[in-house]
Nucleic acid binder design. Structure first.
Length: 476
RNA sequence: CGGGGUGUGGCGCAGCCCGGUAGCGCGCUUCGUUCGGGACGAAGAGGUCGAAGGUUCAAAUCCUUUCACCCCGACCA
């Protein structure tokens, strides 16, 4: 493996792939479009899972697990749903050496099988709300794939809830969107824009789709999580009704929502630089890496301080690893752990021990601090949050710098072509116009943000009066 | 599916035009010296040249067929 990675400015896509592979996050699987998530990458995903799972439980949800295989005819019950997913489902036609009576669809998402079950479980308003989440793999046969961002099989969580009223379901949809926003911003240090998807970008089978949209360091948008208000579409398709307090039968109201391993890709592209990954401390597998520097005669001396520091960091729950591999030099280790994005590096050598200090290097800023050993643990502990905040602020500043407002079509095209990033512009709400803009510029409507300007404006394409300002961008 | 490209030790590649003993760098193994920004030396291990067929005394190299993967476009978390 060669030293370093392709520079972001040379080829961002190549940089991304280089980092994923050199930081040992993931590797290509033998089947086209599949990905092996390696231990270091999986550790990040496990951190995501741990944090999100807690948030879901704190908002009243429970976990369950539904089967991978779905009878093919289930997919046909909801018209929009089948139309949306038909081209990308994998179908199993044989089992046990025989052709199956009915082919089985490998789930691209679980609405159908879940609502098939909910029909059995829901009969009264007393059974509602039903708030279930599952952690699972799903398969979507994509034409073009990229590690983490779009793979044939991916890991995600999908929440599926059933409610007695439309208001309550809508409230749930937005509550989860807020969970996603909090997770992205407070843990991944990835600022996001919350809003509603346009009709053409919404989930197949949803009434409304909301999303969080993040800006990557190349200015492109990444849809990072979606929350759908499904209305009664799936309840109608699967005949899921309940008796309300007036003893009347009613269709239930539904939501579904998910985030996937794509978030790992978002994390990489939100913070990384030409030296590799930069991980926010709250989700980093290791927050501190200690690199002891010694020769045989100074080993005991150095390791005593190292072990002492590990104990102290352990007490304050700072995730730490020590790289005392004898085979590689300190210089090699510096580069390797920078590639892996560990937020803080501590160097302790004989000279340091003599002076009663250690060297701390902050990954994202490159700052070098000489800290007294007696103050070291406290310094590192406090910098977990300091670094977390700095990374969020840096990402936010980057997004603001790369977000422009366009009021004329020429201006719009110029920004998309020459500057990139997000473009705020008014839109008349027409799918036709949305399509034309996409054809002419490759920019799509990422979302209709909740955050709207006071004044109305004119549609960027037609010049008609418009009250909705939307975010356009090229997207992953 | 359209356009482009690549298949040769684990990884990255050269060799192919012009057929003649399969090579280089990195990695790996062992030993020794090193160790504060990608250490060095010595000795080793490791390849049915993507697959099938053909031409030839002889094929990684020429011909035919085929498969796979990657990149760019049309679909998508």
């Amino acid at each position: 493996m060669s030293k370093g990675v392709t520079k972001q400015s040379d080829d961002f896509a190549k940089w991304y792939t280089d980092v994923v592979r050199q930081a040992k996050l993931a590797d290509y699987g033998p089947v086209k479009g599949t990905m092996v998530i390696r231990p270091y990458g999986y550790a990040i995903w496990e951190n995501f899972q741990r944090i999100l799972d807690r948030m879901f439980k704190d908002t009243g949800h429970v976990n369950a697990y539904f089967p991978l295989f779905i009878p093919e005819h289930f997919m046909h019950k909801e018209a929009e749903h089948v139309e949306g997913f038909a081209p990308e489902v994998a179908v199993v036609t044989h089992g046990g050496g025989k052709k199956l009576e009915e082919p089985l669809v490998v789930r691209p998402t679980s609405e159908t099988i879940i609502w098939n079950m909910y029909k059995k479980w829901i009969s009264s308003y007393r059974d509602l709300p039903l708030l279930i989440n599952q952690w699972a793999n799903v398969v979507r046969w994509e034409m073009r794939t990229r590690l983490f961002l779009r793979t044939t099989e991916f890991l995600w969580q999908e929440g599926h809830t059933a409610h007695a009223t439309a208001e309550e379901a809508e409230e749930e949809t937005l509550k989860i969107l807020e969970v996603y926003r909090t997770f992205a911003e407070d843990f991944m240090a990835m600022p996001v824009i919350t809003g509603q998807k346009s009709e053409s970008e919404k989930f197949a089978g949803a009434v409304r789709t909301y999303s969080i949209e993040a800006m990557m360091r190349d200015g492109k948008a990444l849809q990072s999580g979606t929350s759908h208000y499904l209305g009664q579409n799936f309840a109608r398709a699967f005949e899921v009704t309940f008796q309300n307090t007036d003893n009347q039968e009613e269709l239930v109201y539904a939501t579904s929502w998910g985030v996937s391993t794509r978030l790992v890709g978002g994390l990489i592209m939100s913070h990384g630089d030409d030296k590799g990954l930069i991980l926010p401390p709250r989700v980093a597998p290791y927050q501190v890496v200690i690199i002891p520097i010694y020769r045989d005669d100074t080993r005991a001396l150095v390791m005593e301080e190292v072990n002492n520091l590990v104990d102290q960091l352990d007490k304050v729950n700072v995730r730490t690893t020590v790289d005392d591999d004898q085979k590689s030099s300190p210089g090699f280790k510096f580069n390797e752990w920078e590639m892996k994005g560990v937020p803080m590096r501590v160097e302790i050598g004989p000279k340091d021990v003599e002076k009663g200090q250690a060297v701390v290097v902050i990954r994202h800023s490159g700052e070098k601090h000489f800290i007294k050993l007696t103050e070291l643990a406290a310094f590192l502990d406090s910098h977990v949050e300091i670094i977390q905040d700095q990374l969020f602020q840096r990402a936010l500043d980057f997004r603001e710098e790369n977000t422009h407002t366009a009021t004329t079509w020429d201006e719009f095209k110029d920004i998309i072509e020459n500057k990139g990033g997000f473009v705020k512009a008014f839109w008349n709400g027409s799918a036709d116009v949305e399509e034309k803009i996409k054809d002419e510029t490759k920019a799509t409507i990422r979302c209709i943000p909740f955050d709207q300007p006071e004044a109305a404006g004119k549609c960027i394409y037609t010049g008609e009066d418009s009250t909705q300002q939307v975010i356009f961008a090229k997207a992953y």
